[in-house]
Every structure is written in C-alpha cells, then in structure tokens.
C-alpha cells in the first residue's frame, strides 16, 4: 500500500484521485470548524452588555459648584471646574495608563507614573501622550448639569452658566 503511494509521489504528474480530494475536503472542513470554534469562543467572552456607569449623568445644579471650585467626582471619574461663570468637566483618568489623577489648584498629577497636567489638562510633564479630555457639559431642562462622557469637546471650550 505504502509502496504504491510512494510510487505515485515519484511520478511527476500526480493524478488527482477521489481519495485525495476527499482527504483535502475533510482536512479543510476540520480546520475550518476549528477556526470557527476558536472565533466563537471570543464572541462568547466578549460581553454584549456591561454593568458600568452610563456615559451621560447628572451632577447637580450649578449652585452646587461655587466659583473657584475644582472638585473630582470619583465614581464618575471626572473633575468639575468652575471659574467665575465658566464651567468645565475634565476627565481625571490619566491618558497614560488609566490611573486617577489627583486634582490640585495648580493642575493634575498622576501618582502612578508621574504624569503632570496644567489646570486645563494639558500635559506639562511625564509620559502621558495626550491632554486630559474635556467632556460636554450641558444644562438639562430641570436645571441640573449633565456630563456626557461619550462626547469629547475641544479643550478650552468652556460652558457658560
């Protein structure tokens, strides 16, 4: 049997036998199924719904934030800043590796790898590759401020109360 096979290989033109076609189809079928199963595992472990916070949330009325406020909202991971009548919502998730930056009057500082940002979130030192993003701030009909973390705005575009 094996001698016969070898003889076939020696011949320059190998005839396509039914057996070879079937073997090829079987291999491809098994290989294809294997790839599909591996892929479907990834589909399975990728959650379709998450239990995290909504991207759009209310933070109270403007009166809760008197002028001069620089306060960090930990759960929402956003800093609310008010200078006079101008307000802004700046992310406090470090653009480097996701630590929460500390909020001070002089700016933001990351305790993990030493990134530093100025008051408006621009990088002044450390490994952070991008400035801290600003999120859209708006006044809802009920008089409450709303932050939408899904909408980044150009830094420096203040919201006037």
């Amino acid at each position: 049997m094996s001698e016969k096979d070898n003889a076939h290989e020696v011949e320059s033109s190998e005839p396509i036998t039914r057996r070879k076609v079937l073997a090829w189809l079987t291999s491809m079928g098994i290989l294809g199924s294997a790839i599909v199963s591996v892929f479907s595992n990834f589909v399975f472990i990728k959650p379709r719904a998450t239990y995290g916070l909504p991207t759009r949330f209310s933070i109270g009325t403007p009166n809760d934030y008197p002028p001069g406020t620089r306060i960090a909202l930990g759960k929402e991971r956003v800093a609310i800043i008010r200078e006079g009548e101008k307000m802004a919502a700046i992310s406090i998730t470090c653009t480097h590796l996701g630590c929460i930056v500390g909020v001070a009057d002089t700016g933001f500082a990351c305790p993990c790898h030493g990134s530093r940002f100025d008051q408006d979130g621009n990088v002044t030192g450390g490994p952070a590759p991008r400035p801290l993003p600003w999120y859209e701030l708006s006044l809802a009909p009920n008089g409450e401020l709303e932050v939408d973390k899904g909408k980044e705005i150009t830094p420096g575009k203040w919201f006037t109360v």
Partner: peptide, 25 residues
C-alpha cells in the same frame, strides 16, 4: 476607586516594566 496609593507600585518583578512604562507607555 478615587485614590490610587501614591506611589502606586506593582510587585517587584513588574517594577522594571513599570519603570519602562514611565518613559513611554
């Protein structure tokens, strides 16, 4: 969730990596 320890250090065997990361992520 609000306050990372400062400095926030990984166990010793990842501190080399963390040091590298502090230059460029």
């Amino acid at each position: 969730v609000m306050h990372p320890p400062n400095p926030a250090k990984a166990p010793w065997y990842f501190l080399g990596l963390q040091e590298q990361v502090s230059y460029s992520a």
